[in-house]
Design a protein around this nucleic acid. Structure first.
Length: 488
RNA sequence: GGUACUUUGGCCGAGUGGCUAGGCACCGGUCUGCAAAACCGCACACGGCGGUUCGAAUCCGCCAAGUACCUCCA
């Protein structure tokens, strides 16, 4: 497969040419949500970022197996290896079975992703459904000598691992510094070192989520699931592992250590991380209490929002920034995106209705190559969008009858827009298509046709009455050369 | 304290050693019965101080401000 896709590899801090291990197959693993609460804007970012990558790799002709997990066990509340399981806590508070909590939020996550037009992954494994694989993985690490048992729990021996391999290579951390800065906190823990992390935890008597293992009845450590499920479905070596930047340490660092310890080799070739979303310059995070649910965006029911924003607006907003930049949220920025998106989508709709002329009077031939080039350069979606807007100027001029497109150019332009807008950026026109909706649309058309008649007869009073009252109801009426357009 | 990153016009947000990113807003114009939409034009941006260079916002150094990670978070 010939292409020049470059991706930024966090492991080496630079863009690298993407060469799959087993072309044309590509294996891609992305850390999914811990399902103990509603999805928020922060969840939308990796989902959309890696959705773009998934779509684009397929466009390039690769056969992609995309695995995105659901974390439903092992993710603890507090410092690495103590505190309550997040799911269990939510279940206790709501008086539900843990799996009820999991199912409820998984369903809601799917619904939100669908609204954002995020394609479902090829496989969506649950941590709780892969306990056996995780136990096996822990056993492998023990057998390799990089873990120890303590009071029924199993911990990863970071110091010993670091003597043979390098712990901290992904996040750029130095183990000696880490040991030094935390040494005085050590003492009564069952861990030998504070930097060690849990592979298996013995369950406390009141802990309801528990499974039998050789060491105790308990549950796997948080980092275990990704190592076990990633290698199960994608093999001991696979191409891409993605996730939010905040997962780089400790989660991904520990994953690397686990896999390398158990298998004796590097598992992931390209590590990719999307940046964070900020609110007023501050990271959106659970502990800060400043995160906004996706549903609140869609309904506009959050104090920071001045109005509802549609899923496509949110998607477009995220795509207008590069995935490795932080993007600062504000109602103002969202409004700008909303307007920009509707201009883009209206222009695209107009394009599909244009009629060809004998020749083209404006140049748009380079659009496809320019868009591809931007995508190949580490998925530069903002540049793709800027090229589309430039082409939009030509489209609008032709639509106004000021310029012309030849049939060849028109077909090409339609093709590129369909490819880039719909298939790669995944932007779709948001419309409801029920029968009642159709009838309602026809009724509006009828009214506007009556207005057209009135205009012909220079009956401005009637014409303005129709337009003004529709405007008052929230419609936007635009007169065109030979008719009208409207939207709500 | 350690590590990393960021700093671009009113707002958002790309980018390259010399060539207009783009969007939104504002203002002016074309069009229109009036408007809206569309189109055209407009602001002539790159944290500060030095250095490298024929030339730097883009490379290097120092400084300043901010953010993130080092605990859970996408």
């Amino acid at each position: 497969m010939e292409n020049k896709l470059t991706l930024y590899n966090t492991l080496h801090r630079k863009k690298e040419l993407f060469i799959p291990i087993h072309s044309p197959h590509v294996g891609m693993y992305v850390c999914g949500p811990t399902v103990y609460g509603d999805a928020h804007l922060g969840h939308a970012r990796p989902a959309i970022t890696f959705d773009i990558l998934f779509r684009y790799l397929q466009h390039l002709g690769y056969k992609v197996r995309y695995v995105r997990n659901i974390t439903d066990v092992g993710h603890l509340e507090n410092d690495a290896d103590s505190g309550e399981d997040k799911i269990a806590k939510k279940a206790r508070l709501d008086e539900l079975e843990p799996m009820e909590v999991v199912q409820y939020y998984t369903n809601r996550y799917h619904k939100a992703m669908e609204a954002l037009n995020v394609l479902p992954p090829s496989i969506e494994p649950h941590a709780s459904g892969h306990i056996m694989e995780q136990i096996d993985f822990v056993q492998k690490i023990l057998n390799a000598g990089f873990a120890y048992e303590s009071e029924g729990s199993v911990y990863f021996d970071v110091e010993k691992y670091n003597k043979k391999y390098q712990y901290g290579k992904l996040s750029g951390r130095n183990i000696d510094d880490m040991l030094e800065s935390t040494r005085d906190l050590d003492g009564q823990s069952e861990k030998r070192r504070s930097v060690d992390f849990a592979l298996w935890k013995k369950a406390a008597p009141e802990h309801i989520m528990r499974w039998k293992a050789p060491w105790s009845e308990g549950f796997p450590g948080w980092h275990m699931e990704c190592s076990a499920m990633g290698t199960k479905y994608l093999g001991e070596e696979f191409d891409i592992h993605g996730g939010g930047m905040d997962l780089m340490f400790p989660h991904h660092e520990c994953e690397i250590a686990q896999s390398t310890a158990a298998l004796g080799k590097e598992t992931v070739k390209y590590w990719m991380h999307n940046n964070m979303i900020t609110i007023n310059g501050q990271k959106m995070g659970k502990s800060l209490g400043n995160f906004i649910n996706l549903e609140e965006f869609f309904t506009g029911t959050h104090p920071l929002l001045t109005q509802p924003f549609s899923p496509m607006t949110v998607r477009f907003f995220i795509l207008q920034a590069h995935y490795r930049s932080t993007v600062d949220f504000s109602s103002e920025a969202l409004q700008a995106s909303e307007k920009g998106l509707s201009r883009l989508m209206e222009g695209y709709a107009r394009l599909q209705k244009l009629t060809p002329s004998a020749t083209s009077s404006v140049e748009t031939a380079g659009l496809r190559a320019k868009c591809e080039e931007a995508m190949l350069d580490d998925l530069n979606t903002p540049i793709v969008i800027s090229h589309l807007f430039e082409a939009l100027k030509a489209i609008n001029l032709v639509s106004d009858g000021k310029e012309t497109f030849s049939e060849v150019d028109l077909v090409e332009l339609n093709d590129v827009f369909k490819l880039m807008v719909e298939e790669i950026l995944g932007l779709v026109v948001e419309t409801e298509t029920s029968a009642g909706n159709e009838a309602y649309k026809k009724a509006i058309d009828l009214l506007l046709n009556m207005r057209l008649e009135a205009k012909k007869n220079k009956d401005w009073a009637t014409s303005d009455k129709i337009r003004n009252e529709l405007t008052a109801l929230g419609f936007e009426i635009k007169d065109t050369k030979d008719g009208f357009e409207w939207r709500i």
